[in-house]
Design a protein around this nucleic acid. Sequence first.
DNA 1: CTATGATCATGA
DNA 2: TCATGATCATAG
Length: 223
Amino acid sequence: MIDKKFTPPKTQKELMCRCEDLAGKTLGQLANELQIVVPENLKRHKGWVGMLLESYLGADAGNQAEPDFIGLGIEMKTMPINALGQPKESTYVCTVTLEQSGELHWKDSWIKRKLNHVLWVPIEAEPSIPLAERFVGNAWLWRPTAEQDTMLERDWSELMDRVVLGEQSEITAKEGEYLQIRPKAANSKVLATGISAVGEKEKINPKGFYLRTSFTRKLLEQG
DNA sequence: CTATGATCATGA
DNA sequence: TCATGATCATAG
C-alpha cells in the first residue's frame, strides 16, 4: 500500500525533528510527499493513517514484533482526536498470547515492553473532516510514570490471572479500569490456540490488549 | 495462521 | 450516545 519511505532516524533528536516537521500538515500533504493516494475513507483502510505516519517518520520494524523504531526502542502510536479534542478510540497495544501466561511478572511482559517508550502522534479523526484535510498535531514522547505504570500493572495482573486460569475466552471488554481485553482478529471466526479452564488446548477467538480512552486522555492532557 | 496498522458498527 | 464486540488491509 505504501512504498516510498524515509530512512530510519538515527537519533531521538532526529525523530523529534521530523515530528515537528509534520505537525500542522494535513494527511493529504503528507500523502503527496510520499506519492500516496488518499483513500475515500478509512472503512477499508483502517490502518492507513498509522502506516502513512510510520513511512514519513522512517519506522523500520515492518510487521516484526518489535518497537517501530528498532534502533531507538520507540513505539509509535497515532492518537485519533475527536471534535472535543479528546481521544476518539481506544489504543491497541498487542495480542494476548499463551506465552504471556508464562510471563508472570509485569516487568517481563510484552505489553510492558511495548509501552516502555511511546511516540504519540495526535491526528484529527472527526468523520466529518475529509481524510486528506485532517491535521497532524504535536507529537510527544512518553514513558509511563510510576503511577501510570502501577495503574496498568494492576489491570494487567487481574486480567492475566484469568488468562492463566484458562478463562481468556470469558474475558469481556468491561473488565480493567485502563487496560482492557477485546477481540483482535480479521473476524469472529478466526481461531487461535488457547488453554481452557481444565488446562486443555482449545480454539478461541484471538484477543488483544487495548488502552482505554480514559487512560490516553490523561496522557493527552499531560503530554 | 501471525504479525503489523487500527476504526467500524451496532446494541444497550 | 458510546463502549463493546466485530471487522478491514497487508505481508510473511
